[in-house]
Every structure is written in structure tokens, then in C-alpha cells.
Simulated assay, not measured.
Amino acid sequence: MSGPDPAPPRVLFVGGLGRSGSTLLELLLAQSGDVCAVGEVVHLWERALGADERCGCGERFTACPFWRQVGDLAFGGWDAVDRDDVLALKDRVDRTRHIPRLAKEALPPEQLADVRRYADLYTRIYRAALAVTGARVVVDSSKHASLAFALRWAEGLDLRVLHLVRDSRAVAYSWGKQVRRPEVVDGEDFMPTFSPFEVSKLWTAQNAAFHLLASRAKVLRLRYEDFTADPAGTVRRVRDFAGLPDDPAALRILSAEAADVASEPAAPFRAHSVAGNPLRFSGGPLTVRRDEAWRDRLPRRSRAVVSLATLPLRVRYGYLGQRGSDESVERA
């Protein structure tokens, strides 16, 4: 007689446009033993399996004991994964242009089969990561709205989405800087850069998509500025959204001094994260400090372009002095 079906793996998916503080928040959450942070899993197929880039622990993906165990449990070994097939499936499912289709109440059988097969790959990874670590929640900071929409079709997955928002002007300034990718071992590579207008389009599209998703899944909206003003309160609120109790030990390492907050774990900590901000390789005490360099360094013309192009959502999020809705939990 078989036992009861295992509980669906619970994943906290961090969504939004990059350069909004997701890596730092993920690392803070992972200070607690009941949280497992795996970075941006959406890039695993190309950067980890394809290029064998470094895990957040410092080892190459293929040499990381954690990811070896995850691969064994999820697929019987990473060698069993047909990467070309996964990338082709990803192209059919996980693209921004597919969001209108993924947002529908029903899908044709062939499309539904593709979406669920794609989502099952992630579900297997999440379940294996929880089994390896003994954690209760896995954090995936992939951010891509299209992946979040695909995951809502997964069978046997407890999906909770954290929609992380940052002032569009700060995001535009950050995406204009050249940042080296330390995970690249064989050679040198840099994160992409985007013009202020390109960032404005991406920022609007991604955030608008998560508004749409909020009518179909569990979504908590959080502003970067509120996170940096009160890291401890943020960690507590996000843990509650993820169905986790307070962790006094984790909260003690956070000071709630606005805009200049130091977090000092007992020992250097690195998450087994694939892709993300270079911060994940620091290995030392985490520091939460609001970065507002954009106020002085973003050129006036660029600031004007971004301000105008993103005005409707900046108003909605309270960046013009109006009250935002960042503390609301929206449910289907």
C-alpha cells in the first residue's frame, strides 16, 4: 500500500526587472535553514549546463556537490537532460511574447502539454533542492514574468510570487553600468547594458505582466525602497507570505536603521545560486544599504526620458508621493 502523496514543493518566485535588489533579498532569506536559495534557475540550461559557469558557492556547476545531488534526484543525473530539447521547449513556452497566451484560463491540449512539461522541469529541481537541504521553501529569483506565468500551469507546485519593484530611474542607471560576470570561468564576459528608453520599455512590460499575474496566482508586491528602509520587517513579511514562521535568529542579524543597515551572519555564507548579481560571490557579511547614486549620476536627459516613459506605473507605486499598494497581497 503506497503512502500519501508528498506535499507539493513550495517555491517563492522573485519577479520583476533585474537590478531591483532580488539577489540581496534572496541571500537574506537564505540565512534561515528553512529557506533554500537557488538563484536564477531560468538561466541554468544555458549558463550552468551549457557553459559550466560557477555556482554561488564558487565551484563550477558540474563540480558543485549540491547541484550534483539535485541533478541526481530530479533527473537521474544532469547527463539525462537533453539540453537542446529543453532550450527548444523554452523558446516555445518561456518568452515575453507568450504571456497573453499563458494568461488565458485554458490552453489547447498541445500547448498545455508543452507548458506543463516545461514547468515540470522546474518542479523537479525545486523538489530535489528541498530534499537535499531539508528546507521548506525554495527561492527562485529568475524574475522573468513569462516563467512565472508558465509555472502557474504546473501540476503539484505551491507557487508564491514576490513582485519586487524599484524606481525606474534607479533601474535605468544601474542597467547603464558595465558589470563583469564573475561566474564566467573560461574568458571574460559582462552583463548586458540597456539604454534608458530600452529599460523603460522592459520595466513597464515586466511590472505590468506581474499585475496581470496577480489575478491568477498568489502575488505579494514589495518596493525595493521599503525593503532597504526596513530589512527585518521585510524578511518577516516575506516569510509570512511564504508560509514560514518568524525566525528570531535571522531577524537578530538585521538592524532596522533606514537606508544604512548592516547584516552580519555568524559566518560567511554563500547560496548555491545559478546566475544573479555578483554580490552572491562576496561570501562575507551582507550589507543592506539603499543605493541612490542615480539621483546625482543619471544624466538629466536620461532621467527625463525614463520619468516620462514610466509615469503611469511610477504613480501607481507611489514614486510621486502617492501611496502605493506595495503591502497588498493579491490572490486569484
Rank of each mutant, 00 (worst) to 15 (best):
P4V: 06
A7S: 14
A7P: 13
R10E: 02
L17I: 07
L44S: 11
E53V: 02
E53Y: 06
F75M: 07
V81H: 08
R92D: 05
R95L: 05
I99Y: 05
A106P: 00
P109L: 10
E110I: 04
R117D: 09
D120E: 15
D120M: 12
L130K: 07
V132Y: 13
V139K: 01
K143H: 11
F149R: 03
E155S: 15
L157M: 05
L157Y: 05
V161P: 01
L164I: 09
S168F: 08
V179P: 02
D189Y: 11
M191Y: 13
V199L: 00
K201S: 11
K201H: 13
L202I: 07
T204P: 03
A205P: 04
L213W: 01
A217T: 07
V219G: 06
A229F: 09
G233N: 10
V238I: 13
L244P: 00
D246H: 04
D246C: 03
A258G: 15
S263C: 11
A266W: 13
F269G: 02
G276Y: 04
G283F: 12
G284Q: 07
R290D: 08
D291V: 14
E292R: 04
A293I: 00
R297N: 06
L298W: 09
R300D: 15
R301L: 15
S302R: 02
L311E: 14
V315W: 15
R316M: 14
G318H: 12
S328C: 08
S328N: 09
V329C: 13
